[in-house]
């Protein structure tokens, strides 16, 4: 009796330590967000007078308006809005296309295997791990040759090429666990290559598609290097514009505007996680258990 109750209190004690630790970590990770939010809602004077951690005494949305449509980014005072639009125009097609092509690749690599398909998959995987820096110069040359240099379509192309490796990996592993008998049944029923893909495989790919979309969206939205390397002033993505906003040397540094801009840049990925996060975990689990 006494042994079991003392073991139980031991467990409880352990739990308290664990929860305390987790709570501390939680605060540690949330603190930056707190700092960003409160400071983006203060007048600049409150920040410069040393009140970084305190709540705003005078609540103002002016920094947000500034960051969105008035602040000096690069040479013109356009705010971040055009660059936000650039990023959307880049990320939506890039994510959609890389996910779709990854699904198609995964379908071929598992259900229509051909000589050398394993090697091809190996090479695609290898492509995932080539450091970005290595491809910068060859890619710049390629984009130049294709007439896509310094444009949003050029950025879409770069991210598409880089994204295919990972999206193929996701879908290949998911489809490897997808029963081949279904494909054979559909063949006998008279469905062709693309019909089987559209009507049978894709409708059952929800969980892995969510994983892939979140992954690609976060990576492409947050990318800075490709954005900085392959864009012109009018095609810069949000990340690069944010950097220009923060780095602009004219006048006083408007920290509150910077904070607001940074939150704007982070918001879409945050939103994607909140909306699809549940499916993300579920999809990862499904892949690992079945694959």
């Amino acid at each position: 009796m006494s042994a079991s109750s003392s073991a139980k209190s031991g467990i409880n004690f352990g739990r308290y330590i664990l929860y305390t630790l987790l709570a501390l970590f939680c605060i540690y990770y949330l603190l930056p967000l707190y700092v960003m939010v409160v400071n983006s809602l203060k007048p600049l004077s409150e920040i410069t007078s040393g009140g970084m951690m305190s709540l705003p005494q005078e609540l103002t949305f002016a920094p947000w308006q500034n960051a969105w449509s008035k602040a000096q980014v690069g040479v013109e005072a356009t705010g971040l809005r055009p660059y936000f639009i650039n990023s959307i125009q880049m990320v939506v097609p890039a994510v959609a296309l890389s996910t779709l092509l990854g699904a198609l690749n995964g379908y071929v690599l598992t259900k229509w295997q051909f000589r050398g398909s394993t090697i091809l998959f190996g090479l695609l995987l290898f492509g995932c791990f080539i450091p970005f820096q290595i491809v910068l110069i060859p890619m710049a040359r390629m984009l130049g040759l294709m007439g896509l240099a310094g444009s949003v379509p050029g950025l879409i192309f770069v991210h598409l090429v880089y994204g295919i490796g990972f999206s193929t990996l996701y879908f290949r592993n998911y489809y490897a666990a997808f029963p081949t008998e279904l494909v054979r049944a559909a063949q006998i029923d008279g469905a062709g290559f693309f019909t089987i893909f559209w009507r049978i495989l894709l409708p059952s790919s929800g969980p892995i598609a969510v994983v892939c979309i979140i992954w690609q969206f976060t990576n492409i939205w947050n990318d800075f290097l490709f954005g900085a390397s392959f864009s012109d002033f009018d095609s810069q993505p949000m990340t690069v514009a944010l950097n220009n906003l923060v780095q602009s040397s004219t006048g006083v540094k408007e920290y509150n505007v910077h904070f607001a801009g940074a939150i704007m840049a982070a918001l879409p990925t945050l939103l994607v996680y909140i909306v699809a996060g549940r499916y993300f975990v579920r999809g990862l689990m499904a892949g690992s258990v079945k694959g």
Binding site: E181, L182, R184, A185, A186, I188, D189
Partner: peptide, 15 residues
């Protein structure tokens, strides 16, 4: 599809 056959699979293979 052009052999005019139909097949029932062990796993049933229902879509």
């Amino acid at each position: 599809a052009e052999r005019n056959i139909a097949m029932v699979f062990q796993s049933y293979a229902l879509y």
